[in-house]
Write a protein that binds this DNA or RNA. Structure first.
Lengths: 299, 299
DNA sequence: AAGTCGTGGTCGATATTTGCACCATATCCC
DNA sequence: GGGATATGGTGCAAATATCGACCACGACTT
């Protein structure tokens, strides 16, 4: 009696074409049990039996035959609808200017932008590495990825998964400097520059280890660590994917940094900006496990 | 880009017509939050912005306007489909013969059959009160409702919610015979007939209470109890709905009896039988709370 | 006759979705 | 200015749907 679930029409079509619950389930990429349950749902809501279950698969009833044409009409209209949507959205054109911290842009954001421009070829995306909010406030950028968010700044934003940092070193380095689970004579790689006194080491698992070398750029530092020159702290979505680096055994996350995708309130209504922002958030959320470091090391 | 959820088209239409998330939600009988979430889902899966959220409700974008026609086409096809299903299924005709215990048929099953025949006017339903399986085995009945099920009998069936029995008496009777939560001088109503020695009383909360009168028919007994002549045990789906009866305070369920809807394996493929069986199971499941006595007394 | 493969159906642990109670905001009205 | 009443959005507990491992049955093969 209740209205039929429109999704069940897809299932009906798959059942009709597959002539078996299991084949239909495979085509629909579901388990055969949920397909079976949806079939009974549809049958009860229509008040009619669509298939008689027999020894080798399903046999369509008269009712199923008659409904088929209507179901295919629904399907065609849906195909039509999605096609107009995806074809028309390429009308969207114009610039989208993103600003984000350097490492983030190189490692994570660029592939996403590549995907985005493939889908919306007439949108011109530009990326500018920076840590400040000025771009956004001054109107030289539309979207900013930042790890600080002060609501007073009159910006709107969505919070993304927290970026987690771990301690990394090369496998060989750990083999040479670890003895029964303890570090012996291990060293950090210096970050130089503004943090010349290396205060950050105080918050690590090895606050008394010595500091050697000086690599302000984080990617340089990662390469140095991979080459066995010492320990370093990296976002795990980056460190985990580098082949020669491993998390230093027995250590916990060094820090968790919140990340926001921010934009100016005036731009919230822009279809172009909104589309990009939504795309970005979806893509980043897909990699939540990598970002928060939930999973162990996988190669 | 994942395929759009077909149900989201209904939501899109409701949104377009309601011009606000909350109004659409009301028409769809959902909460505004899930409508909002589904809108975002649809927009991301289409890769397009359908509405700009503004101060007073939603404003349809160009894209929404263009998609509207297609969405309405889908809707019309769906309406068409359900209409053919509902009109064609009245082609189903022939007899369905049900057998079930007397009380069940009168109190619970008859209204359902009335509903069923309204929906399928050409199906002739006949009900025969009986406790035995013979009808089913001999082929004089198609469907049996029974509280015993021996798989050896070569029958197929579905289990329904357990029927729960409670102890009932009239409000006045309890007022007269109860003192600080204890029964004083209360009596059972005799069932007579085969159970002349009233062994069933042993399993009740008042095994030593006296027995008066003699009413073999359960509906007579219920009426006698409602008139204040004593206590009796009734299925709670029946006792709870009688205006003058209440569950005797402080008592637990006296018994729980499983119920099966059974049919002969040969009949399983019959569209007519299957439709009826499915209808019955759905309707009875709706009243699960009343049958198992989960809820307190409501009038 | 026994084993294997395919069919649909069933049940319980797990994921996902939903609804609810909030929040921030904007408009209108007094 | 200060409610009062709209709007859409969000975090969390509860309801719901999903999966996957089973079962029973029938049709083949061995």
């Amino acid at each position: 009696m209740s209205e039929p679930d429109w999704n069940d029409i897809r299932i009906f079509l798959a059942l009709f074409r597959g002539r078996s619950v299991r084949r239909a389930a495979e085509n629909l990429d579901m388990s055969h049990s949920t397909v079976s349950r949806h079939l009974t749902d549809l049958e009860t809501s229509l008040g009619a039996v669509l298939f008689t279950r027999s020894r080798d698969g399903l046999l369509a009833t008269d009712m199923a035959e008659r409904i088929l044409a209507k179901a295919e009409a629904v399907e065609n209209d849906m195909i039509d609808l999605t096609r107009t949507a995806v074809s028309l959205d390429s009308v969207m054109s114009g610039p989208v200017r993103v600003t984000c911290p350097p490492l983030l842009s190189q490692i994570m954001i660029m592939p996403m932008i590549a995907e985005f421009t493939k889908r919306y070829p007439d949108i011109e995306v530009s990326v500018h590495s920076s840590y400040s909010f000025e771009d956004l406030m001054r109107g030289t950028a539309d979207i900013a990825l930042r790890s600080q968010f002060d609501p007073n700044d009159n910006l709107v934003g969505r919070r993304l998964p927290d970026f987690t940092d771990y301690t990394y070193a090369s496998k060989d380095y750990i083999g040479d400097h670890w003895f029964e689970g303890d570090a012996t004579n291990a060293n950090w790689l210096g970050r130089g520059g503004s943090d010349a006194h290396n205060k950050w080491i105080k918050q690590t698992p090895f606050p008394n280890a010595s500091v050697r070398h000086d690599f302000p750029d984080m990617m340089d530092q990662a390469q140095a660590a991979a080459a066995g020159m010492g320990m370093t702290v990296l976002p795990c979505y980056y460190g985990d994917q580098l082949p020669n680096l491993v998390r230093v055994p027995g250590t916990q996350p060094v820090s968790k940094r919140p990340i926001w995708a921010l934009t100016h309130p005036d731009l919230r209504t822009s279809v172009r900006i909104k589309t990009f922002l939504r795309f970005l958030v979806t893509e980043i959320s897909k990699q939540e496990a990598q970002i928060t470091g939930e999973l162990g090391v996988d190669t």
